[in-house]
Structure formats: structure tokens, C-alpha cells
């Protein structure tokens, strides 16, 4: 009897009103780690259900964007002269891949609480897993597209080098950035849906400000330092340099990593502070 009593005390929970900043409950997050896989596999499986092409869409989408951007920016705007011996197609594709991962992860993380509101209002679990789980399904798309990019590179005579092993590091940085911003937005969108629209405009606008479909050389030397303050610039630049063996811009990467950490920390704290109200305001 004493055994069971101590056993029960081990699981004691005290519920009381919480105010102010609340620490992230890491042990609880770890206890519910199964949710990461549960939510991720759900999103991946549901993604291309009842489509004829299935996962081929993950390869087709970046290819189609690449064709469009190459025609408009490469040929019509004449930017293809700026990329040297590297074909414009490769430069664009190496920009689209990390960018669509970022945009997808940010969009999904931002809208994740609303998308999962039926669970949020009915059962308790660490809410953080909801935005955190929104990274996985985009990662699958990214890997498929990366494979296509490798094929395309080889077609143009570029062979992936050992430095490709740094891709996971870049992707981790992008993941932290997107989920950090995504957490902040999700906690706001859950209450005020307008910010869902705002988020989609911000990402569209942001894409034009980032050298995704054009090379960074388009921006004149005088103003290029401004790009360092774009948290995505360092990652996209780094990604291109790794794959296409161009010189690295370490300063911009340094800034990007800083922004990632900043947004991740702010996101975590803000999310944890307001999560207790989600079920009431959603």
C-alpha cells in the first residue's frame, strides 16, 4: 500500500492559475516525444493522399518554379549573365529548395494551432509539439527535391562534393528560424486570425527581398550589406556555396545563425507564456 501511495505521489500534479513567464517544461516535452513522430507521420501520410502523382509533386513543384524563374529572371531580365559559368537553372533551384522549406515550415508552424484546434481544446499535451512537428513533412519534400537537384547538377557537369555534408547544418539553422518565427505567429494567429493573412504576405514579400530566384550579384555592392540583416540570406547563400562550390560568405551566415537563435528563444518563451490560454481563445 505504501508502495502504491509513493508511486501515485510521483505523478502528483498541482493545477493553479499561472501568470508571468513560465519555464519550458523540458522533461514533459521529452515524456511526450512520441507526439513528434505521430504528428509528423500524420502530416506526411495525409499530404499527398488521393493525388495521382503522390510524392512526385515534391519534385515537380521546384522544377516548375525553376522553369518559370529561369525564363522570367534569367532570360527576360537577363540576370543569367551574372552567374558566371554556373547555369542560371542551378542557381535558382539551389535557392528555391531551402526557401520553400523555410516558407512551408513557417506557414505550417504559424497555422498549426488553428489546424489542430480540435485536439487543443480536447486533450492535454505539451502544446509545443504542434509547431515543432510542422517541420517534418516539409523535410521530406526537401529531400526529394534535393535528389532532383543532384540529378540536375550532374546533368550540367557539377558533382556534389564532400561539403554537401554541411547541408544538414544549414537545414537545422533554417528549421530553427522558421519554427521560432512560426511559434510566435501561431500563438498570435490562434487568437487573431488576421495574422494568418499577414504571415502569408510577409513570406511572399520576404521572398522577393531574398536572392532566391535571382543571384545576390543583382543587388549593387553599395547596398549588399543590407542583405546580411535578412536572416534567410546567409542560409541560401551558404547552401548555394556548398553545392556549387562558390566562396562562402561567412559574415552573412554568422548573422543568420544569430537570428535563428534569437527567434527560437523568443518564440519558445512567448509560446510557453501564452499557451495556457489557447483552448479558451482558439
Amino acid at each position: 500500500m505504501n508502495d502504491s501511495a509513493t508511486d501515485l505521489r510521483k505523478h502528483r500534479t498541482v493545477i493553479r492559475p499561472r501568470t508571468g513567464w513560465i519555464p519550458v517544461r523540458w522533461h514533459e516535452l521529452w515524456h511526450y516525444r512520441g507526439l513528434l513522430w505521430a504528428f509528423t507521420s500524420r502530416d506526411i501520410k495525409v499530404r499527398y493522399k488521393q493525388t495521382l502523382l503522390g510524392f512526385s509533386w515534391a519534385a515537380l513543384q521546384p522544377i516548375m518554379s525553376m522553369v518559370v524563374f529561369t525564363v522570367i529572371f534569367g532570360k527576360l531580365a537577363g540576370f543569367d549573365s551574372l552567374t558566371g559559368d554556373v547555369p542560371y537553372q542551378l542557381v535558382v533551384m539551389a535557392g528555391i529548395l531551402p526557401w520553400s522549406f523555410f516558407q512551408g515550415a513557417l506557414g505550417r508552424a504559424g497555422n498549426s494551432l488553428v489546424a489542430n484546434q480540435s485536439i487543443v481544446t480536447k486533450v492535454y499535451f505539451p502544446r509545443l509539439w504542434i509547431p515543432l512537428s510542422s517541420l517534418g513533412s516539409g523535410m521530406v519534400d526537401f529531400l526529394i527535391a534535393l535528389f532532383v537537384l543532384f540529378l540536375l547538377m550532374m546533368y550540367y557537369g557539377f558533382y556534389p562534393s564532400v561539403s554537401s555534408l554541411l547541408i544538414p547544418v544549414v537545414m537545422l539553422g533554417i528549421a530553427c528560424l522558421s519554427v521560432g518565427i512560426g511559434m510566435i505567429f501561431s500563438a498570435i494567429i490562434v487568437k487573431v486570425r488576421d495574422f494568418g493573412m499577414v504571415l502569408s504576405y510577409i513570406t511572399t514579400f520576404w521572398m522577393y527581398l531574398t536572392p532566391v530566384m535571382y543571384p545576390a550579384e543583382v543587388v549593387s555592392e553599395k547596398w549588399r550589406w543590407l542583405l546580411d540583416f535578412n536572416p534567410m540570406y546567409g542560409y541560401i547563400n551558404c547552401f548555394r556555396s556548398i553545392l556549387l562550390e562558390q566562396p562562402m560568405n561567412w559574415i552573412s551566415l554568422f548573422y543568420s545563425v544569430g537570428f535563428s537563435i534569437l527567434f527560437l528563444v523568443v518564440g519558445l518563451f512567448y509560446f510557453t507564456r501564452v499557451e495556457k490560454n489557447f483552448a479558451d481563445v482558439v
Partner: peptide
Amino acid sequence: ILSRITDPSTGRIELNGRVSS
């Protein structure tokens, strides 16, 4: 409140054991 979906405004609850709702 008992299943921790939402916080109480005042008061205190003690649960001794794992809860499923």
C-alpha cells in the same frame, strides 16, 4: 480544468496520479 486543457482563474487542484481525459 481537471484535464489541464485550460487554467483555473483562482483556486488550486491537486491530482495524485496519472490523468487521462
